[in-house]
Design a protein around this nucleic acid. Sequence first.
RNA 1: GGCCCCUUGGUCAAGCGGUUAAGACUCCAGAUUUUCAUUCUGGCAACAUGGGUUCGAUUCCCGUAGGGGUCACCA
Length: 546
Amino acid sequence: MNYQALANILFPDVTETPQDLEKKYPVRNLPEHAVVTRIGPSPTGFVHLGNLYNAVIGERLAHQSNGVFYLRIEDTDDKRKVDGAVETLIQAMNYFNVHFDEGAIENNQNNGMYAPYYQRQRKNIYHVIAKYLTQQGKTYPCFLTAEELDTIREQQTANKEDIGIYGKYALANRNLSLEQIQENINSGKPWVLRFRAEQTQELICVEDAIRGKLEMPRNYLDFVLLKSDGIPTYHFAHVVDDYFMHSTHVIRGEEWISSLPMHVELFNTLQWKQPIYCHTATLMKIEDGKKRKLSKRKDPELALAYYQQEGICQDAVWEFLLTVLNSNFEEWRLANPELSYLDFKYSISKMSISGALVDLDKLKDISKEVLSKMPAEKLYAGWLDWCKQYDLEFAKLLETYPERTIKALNVGRTAKKPRKDLENWKQACEFMSFYYQESFQLQDAMPEEIDEETRKLCFKLYLENYAHEDDSATWFAKVKSLTEQLGCAVKPKDYKKNPDQYKGSIIHVTNMLRIALTGRANAPDIWEVSHVLGEEIVKNRLEKWL
RNA sequence: GGCCCCUUGGUCAAGCGGUUAAGACUCCAGAUUUUCAUUCUGGCAACAUGGGUUCGAUUCCCGUAGGGGUCACCA
């Protein structure tokens, strides 16, 4: 077979050579240990936690080594493509503070010297390599139809043989003469370009940065390089792109492990240096006592949009992923409560191999911790951003009362041990609603133990003695004396011991005040809340109970 | 079914031949607090299983079981 002639039949328009591409996409000029990583999502419109999970790893590895982190859109599958998916993806990544140095940063914009970053736009690059491989006798055009392929598969299943095109199943198309090929093409028969694999029983060994040695059979399949529309399969595109874009590390889900032999085969055939593979564990979920893969249909928490909608703070999501990803992050966080998570030195060797469960309780805990440490101004900004997208009514409130909101956010949070009552922005809207007249609602009932008469007296006396400028200690002294006047116990224990001697305890008194002021029995410090609300609102809310 | 990956408490996890088998979350109890939210103290709870190797295995090897992945002109 004259492979040169075959290459010319198959790729008549390709004039460039791999060497030309090497010149066009030179080795990156980076410090010695700089890591170059990427995420390569396909634009299906669904952005899942796993995308962020792998993005976080890539981003940290690249940026903590002064390397490059880029975004490549793997849009080789036309059928799965969804309009607007790329915008959704970029928006989601931006929302979660994942920043790319280059790539498909804005929609349909290629940004960087290794462009284009959309695989569909790289067709000619793949064809250069495909032509080269053809010249080397490493490929052949295959004219098998979908029906013929089905028949082969059925036969193989029936015979309990391995499925795929190899050995005798490949023979017919492998041995086509140049004339037959030319004729098929002239008559418009569609063809795919297949890799001409070695028939072998050898094993290969790949060193995975997360998993260590992976041993598996060497590729023996004549897998597809180019589909009939000339677009490459993932396998071919991955090898070509990560080579010419000079990725040092390929971070991807473990579902790719089984196709690793194909990738290794291509790298070896092309005599290209393989990147370091990092196959990450799949995110799991527990159900009925069993672990299972998170499912798009059943588990809302798989979608990144879920975390946005719930208003879970970006930093919390990062810290959560970091604790799941790097076993020493939690320890580090405990030792360095004031540092940014960006100061944490991420390491591949500390990564877990088995599938991590998405533990929403843990996320909540981390989220409360993160929010409790966040300065009120930053909290306000993040919260407002979220409200503008998901709760316009509340956004209006925040914008109308910025000062009051910031004061409210500082209630009990400026001390060394800040309050941890904020979980996420959605919950914050609910929790903070009593600070605004517009959203104030009476949610809890007044304590039953106190009769109406005593209650009215309580508010009457409280208002009579109320001085807004009192400091906290003076205020509380007054509450104590009010408690005595009402015939209630100042010390709750006294009331517990002798409930008959008192009408109630200071707990009842403060509860009444709290409910009148905030609408609920569980709320922060009354004095502090009063000073956020201001004298007018305080009196207004209390007077209703006279 | 073939091939591959994985397996320490309910969850995340340290451990890398000798440990009272860390720590975090959840849950429970107690303390503190004017209610909450905190904070503090304590508690429940684990090396899937069978065989080796070894003076000694959670740790190394083999088998079994369980979970997961993959076997496309999808990524």
